[in-house]
């Protein structure tokens, strides 16, 4: 079986502030090392895309000015395609600013910017300090691969406080750090195969197990509808990096 992962990066020119390209590179290499075909497609300002051409969609975070530009453009040129992709259970990973944009709205200085409204959440400003630091979260049993991995470690840096609506599930529970708003103990959002999170660092290089989990979900359609279990790689360096990121967040000490 010739597997091929088609990764669609949304606004890579604007939404890359926290080394988001590390996530893309990590997925590429881990596919290549396994002989899985890999194709990276970009969709930037003004560009439309066909949701059926992507197995995995990625969007990162940006600076305020870029994010404003992207919010407007996304509503105009990509909302329908993203909504259809999510409905069709395409994997979507949204980090930081990209995560905020999936909600109903977010606040930038004193204005409220409309988001895509695909995930039931909204993000508001706070006069309190930005939420910055190493962070670790635990995913629920439904998102744990067979080997039992359950912790994502990363770094968060956001001024906005995100609140989930009644219809939204969080991605995980905060073990260390702040999470969505620093008060309710939850982090990120989870909907069909949509994963939204504040964790960068970048996220996937710090959590190789999760990169493989997403690769497996993304290739389910090419695997008779069942998530694929990617063949193991020599992950000694990756495992040490994960342990280091967990320790930085204050776990396992």
């Amino acid at each position: 079986m010739n597997l091929r992962l088609r990764l669609l990066a949304l606004y890579p020119e604007q939404m890359n502030i926290y080394a988001d390209r590390g996530n893309l590179l990590f997925l590429r290499r881990r596919c290549e090392w396994r002989g899985i075909g890999f194709e990276l497609v970009r969709a930037g300002i003004g560009e439309r895309f066909d949701p059926e051409t992507a197995d995995l969609i990625y969007i990162g975070g940006g600076q305020d000015r870029d994010q404003l530009l992207v919010a407007e453009d996304m509503r105009k040129t990509k909302r329908e395609a993203i909504a259809r992709a999510v409905e069709a259970e395409t994997v979507l990973l949204a980090v930081c600013g990209g995560y905020q944009l999936l909600g109903h709205s977010y606040q930038l200085a004193d204005r409220t910017v409309a988001g895509l409204g695909i995930a039931d959440l909204e993000t508001v400003r706070s006069n309190d300090a930005r939420l910055i630091g190493n962070v670790a979260i635990e995913l629920p049993a439904s998102d744990r691969p067979a080997d039992g991995a359950r912790v994502l470690a990363g770094f968060e840096n956001h001024g906005g406080r995100t609140r989930l609506g009644a219809d939204a599930e969080p991605l995980g529970r905060v073990l260390r750090g702040h999470g969505n708003n620093g008060s309710d103990g939850f982090e990120g959002v989870r909907l069909k195969n949509l994963f939204g999170t504040y964790l960068h660092g970048p996220l996937l290089p710090k959590n190789a197990w999760f990169a493989d989990y997403l690769i497996g979900l993304s290739l389910a359609r090419q695997n008779g509808g069942k998530p694929l279990r990617p063949t193991p790689l020599d992950d000694r360096i990756e495992a040490a990096a994960h342990a280091c990121a967990r320790a930085a967040a204050g776990l396992d000490r």
Binding site: I237, E238, A241, A243
Partner: peptide, 12 residues
């Protein structure tokens, strides 16, 4: 203090 993560970057 983040030696393993540096190694990870270099591998990729």
């Amino acid at each position: 203090s983040r030696a393993p993560e540096m190694a990870n970057r270099l591998k990729y």
